[in-house]
């Protein structure tokens, strides 16, 4: 593993994208920053501009209007290397909204997803555990 990747794993800056969620998942992401969970211990930070992001946290069920933007963001605006984490039941399988007329396609048919974190919403502990799995996956540890 090269140095850049190693540093990336030590300081993943996350940007979070919601594609039509119930915003509970988004709140649990914010919750991870707060004193009880404090993901800054692992060097993670929530950044304000897409250009600064290494990890995209995608929540929500793939609303038509926002999926166009998400695709564009992923393809054009995020500096690579970048990983995508799907958070919540919605991002995995569209959950309850699978029959909705406005959520026609699952998330991973538009952008590649590296890790899914199940739960509706996943607890902050689960999100942290998921990110640790992601790190291990990139490191090649099973």
């Amino acid at each position: 593993m090269n140095l850049t990747l190693k540093a990336l794993l030590k300081s993943p800056w996350v940007f979070h994208l919601s594609t039509g969620s119930c915003n509970n998942c988004d709140i649990e992401i914010l919750d991870c920053l707060t004193p009880r969970f404090d993901i800054e211990r692992f060097g993670m930070r929530l950044v304000g501009s897409i250009r600064h992001a290494d990890v995209l946290l995608v929540t929500g069920s793939g609303n038509r209007k926002s999926m166009l933007r998400v695709k564009k963001i992923y393809e054009e605006q995020v500096p690579k290397p970048c990983v995508v984490v799907g958070i919540g039941e919605c991002a995995m399988s569209r959950g309850m909204f699978i029959h909705s007329y406005n959520c026609p396609r699952p998330l991973d048919s538009d952008i590649p997803v590296d890790v899914y974190i199940p739960g509706c919403p996943p607890k902050p502990e689960a999100i942290i555990a998921g990110v640790v799995k992601l790190i291990n996956k990139i490191k090649g540890i099973e």
Binding site: S11, G43, D54, P79
Partner: peptide, 28 residues
Amino acid sequence: TARVQWRVGPPLMQPLYDFVKLLGKETL
């Protein structure tokens, strides 16, 4: 900052990691 906010805060090498990581990223 972290201590004021009742958090633990990043490890000592964190700024260095951030810097090295940014060096390896794509420049748009």
